[in-house]
């Protein structure tokens, strides 16, 4: 009887092991499987002519969402500005103070100069403060929805105050 039980149990174990083997075989090339799944998903989306996700039109716009895309927007914008500046430095003849004097000689008036300074300072200030907000999230703090809103308002207020102050210099 014991022998019979043992044989049955062994067989059960073997069958479960073979099942385990099947699962394991599927699980090992995990990245490939996920990639294949993703490719299938995108192929289907293209075939059915589905709109690109995220479907912006179906969402009610919220402050954190707008702040998130603004963070990305300011990041891309600042990066583009830095690249344009660097390539201009490589390509353009003449040096920086010369161009600065040239722009200054056009005498735009103090209002436009202050506005330009604000337009330059705001993305830097916003991306910096919101970057700090992201770093705080990265250590796992401030994820409750009221906290997300509160930190968002703090970032907006600080960004506006800082860039107004910088523009006024």
């Amino acid at each position: 009887m014991a022998l019979l039980l043992r044989t049955v149990a062994r067989q059960g174990l073997y069958s479960s092991r073979s099942q385990f083997g099947v699962l394991y075989r599927h699980a090992v090339p995990m990245g490939t499987t996920a990639k294949e799944e993703m490719n299938k998903f995108w192929a289907k989306n293209t075939r059915l002519n589905r709109p690109m996700s995220p479907h912006l039109t179906i969402y009610r716009w919220s402050i954190p969402m707008m702040m998130s895309i603004t963070h990305r927007g300011t990041g891309v914008g600042l990066s583009a500005g830095i690249s344009a500046f660097a390539i201009a430095a490589l390509v353009l003849p003449g040096d920086y103070p010369q161009y600065l004097d040239m722009i200054h000689s056009w005498s735009f008036g103090p209002a436009l100069i202050t506005a330009t300074k604000f337009a330059l300072a705001f993305p830097v200030a916003y991306h910096t403060y919101n970057g700090i907000r992201h770093l705080i999230w990265d250590v796992g703090k401030g994820f409750k929805i009221p906290e997300v809103y509160r930190s968002g308002y703090v970032v907006i207020a600080l960004s506006v105050l800082t860039s107004v102050a910088l523009a006024a210099i």
Binding site: A27, M30, G31, T33, A34, E37
Partner: peptide, 12 residues
Amino acid sequence: AKIHATPSNYAG
């Protein structure tokens, strides 16, 4: 692990 397969460039 199978369910948690991460769709990342680095996965795998």
